[in-house]
Computed example of a mutant assay.
Amino acid sequence: MAYDADSDDDRWLIVNGRRWRRTDPSLPAELVAALTSHLGRGRSGVRRAQGDPDATAQARRRVDLAKHGLGERGPYWWDEPEDDRLRRAQQALVELEELEN
């Protein structure tokens, strides 16, 4: 899908009337895949951690880092230079991989 950064349709996804920010389309596919994998693991961790505040906090941290890296949280990706967006995504992945160790 081609993205037009000036179009709301390419910035937002509407699900059940709720607006969600789309992933930054300028990010390389491999980087998106790695961040999305961490996002899925974080979401799964949140579900598994029910009743364990420390595990819940760690899982939510993983989700937050992944979503920031993907551009779905934090500054609007369409308002930033592509180089800054790529650096933020790469840094998020580094931090996520450090959580694994």
Results as ranks from 00 to 15, higher is better:
A2C: 06
Y3V: 06
D4W: 13
D4V: 12
A5Q: 05
D6N: 15
D6V: 00
D6L: 12
S7I: 05
D8S: 10
D9F: 05
R11E: 09
R11P: 05
W12L: 12
L13G: 04
I14M: 12
V15Q: 15
G17A: 11
R18M: 07
R19G: 00
R21L: 06
T23R: 07
P25L: 08
P25A: 12
P25W: 08
S26I: 04
S26K: 00
L27A: 04
E30A: 13
L31V: 01
L31F: 02
S37W: 06
H38M: 01
G40Y: 02
G40C: 02
G42C: 04
S44P: 00
G45P: 03
R48A: 09
R48F: 15
R48L: 08
A49T: 13
A49Y: 13
A49I: 05
A49W: 09
A49D: 06
Q50A: 15
D52N: 11
P53H: 11
A55C: 09
A55M: 03
A55K: 09
A55N: 07
T56N: 04
A57M: 08
Q58V: 04
A59H: 10
A59W: 13
R60W: 02
R60I: 01
R62D: 01
D64Y: 09
D64T: 13
L65H: 05
A66H: 05
A66M: 10
K67Q: 12
H68R: 09
H68L: 05
L70H: 10
L70N: 03
L70W: 09
G71M: 02
E72T: 11
P75H: 15
P75R: 15
W78V: 10
W78C: 05
D79S: 15
D79Y: 10
E80S: 09
E80L: 10
E82V: 14
D83M: 00
D84L: 12
R85Y: 00
L86R: 06
L86W: 01
R87Y: 04
R87I: 01
R87G: 00
R88A: 02
A89T: 04
A92L: 00
A92I: 02
L93F: 10
E97H: 07
E97R: 15
E97I: 12
L99V: 04
E100R: 07
N101W: 15
